[in-house]
Design a protein around this nucleic acid. Structure first.
Lengths: 225, 225
DNA sequence: CGGATTTTGAGAACGCGTTCACAAACTCTT
DNA sequence: AAGAGTTTGTGAACGCGTTCTCAAAATCCG
């Protein structure tokens, strides 16, 4: 969920971009791509903010954390800014990920079109169910849990996705860490404990809907009140 | 993403729970369920916070927004607190949702086990592809986009899920709003514009991984520095 | 060239959320 | 019954993130 890693750092002049900003950089990148596709070479913070769906002042403050890549009175060069953000968030290289659990969700993720264009490559699939091991999903052969460490080492994978039921999540997380994974995206409806050097983000499908349901209930209550 | 709806309200003594708290209530509910399964009848804020993975002070502050459901020197009655939170977030009733787009992701969501136990029921599936219309997925027949309004009205659905490619998202959102949907969970990698009375939350699978990749890159940079 | 216009970058104010810290309220023990 | 021990609920302090605002820097145009 929340991630620490926020020291000002020794080396570079001014490192340590706020978490909130990091989370929006991919959004800006997508907005810049959209502008580039429209053949737009330069844009103001207003234009880009509108495309990204954020406040222009927030956008400028976010970008100021990376450096001064704009020109006063002119705006930002779309291609140049795109390059700089991509560099900052490591999008000029591909990131291999391993998905653990190839049930419905894991299978869907392995086929997800949106990854490849964002520098994410599903490099390996792993499952504990012997019946699934050896089958091919989205062109990738499913490996056994026992081979996780080997697969991760061979392909130098550092990011793992947990797409198992909640009960298996902690066990899988332990195995991932043991295999050398240092970043985990957890789709299972369960908390996982990991060492300090491992980052975990959690996506909980039910909770998102429950939050919407809460607001729905309030709307309904208002209507009758 | 963020949702407004935060007036103190006229009727009740003290309405308007902070967004951040609302987002955690489902987590507490899950933690309480876990405790109940272990046969634990009473717990302190420390116990529950540990189970939920949050700071105990934060937990108490969150719960204080609902009312005074604990007993000093004793703690919280698991069953009672569970009931109160469920009541607050509308979990003692089932919420019907419609999923638009039954590609890989939509299919996976329609089969997702985690929904039913959290009061979410996938009541209808809709797709624009004629080849998919009429097929049955997870026991539900796929309807045509043209029937969306009818389906939503018949089943009194107020929550919709967009599980289409990004290009189709805005069009689908418009149709959902037109059909009477007032809450949308958007999985498509695109912003959607909706009227003020409609809540939208966004889950972006790529962005979550891109954030992890950013931190991975920083770890790698540190190692060489 | 100089004034009007545009737009960035950043200081300052503000607001929300988290955490601290402690009085109040309860139980338990003797 | 009274003192020791727990644990809640909340006021207060703090920190992060957002937004406002405006000087600085660039362009445009007469």
């Amino acid at each position: 969920m929340t991630i620490l890693r926020n020291r000002p750092s020794a080396g570079s002049p001014e490192r340590g971009i706020p978490d909130a900003t990091v989370a929006r950089l991919p959004v800006y990148l997508r907005a810049l791509n959209a502008l580039a596709e429209q053949g737009i070479a330069t844009c103001s913070s207003n234009d880009l903010a509108a495309q990204a769906g954020v406040n222009p002042a927030k956008l400028r403050k976010d970008l100021s954390h990376l450096g001064s890549y704009g020109t006063r009175g002119v705006g930002y060069d779309v291609e140049y800014l795109r390059y700089q953000i991509a560099l900052e968030i490591g999008q000029n290289q591909d990131w291999d990920v391993v998905i653990v659990g190839v049930g419905n969700l894991g299978s869907a993720l392995s086929a997800y079109q949106g990854f490849s264009t964002r520098g994410i490559r599903v490099a390996a699939l792993v499952d504990s169910n012997p019946e699934r091991v050896g089958t091919t999903i989205s062109g990738i052969e499913v490996s056994a849990m026992g081979d996780l460490k080997k697969v991760v080492a061979e392909r130098e994978i550092s990011i793992g996705i947990i797409a198992t039921p909640g009960e298996a999540a902690q066990e899988v997380a332990d195995r991932l860490v043991e295999a050398g994974i240092t970043s985990i995206l957890n789709f299972a409806p369960a908390l996982v404990q990991v060492p300090d050097n491992v980052d975990v983000r959690k996506v909980d499908l039910s909770i998102e809907l429950q939050i919407l349901a809460y607001h729905e209930q309030r709307k309904a209550g208002e209507a009758t009140a």
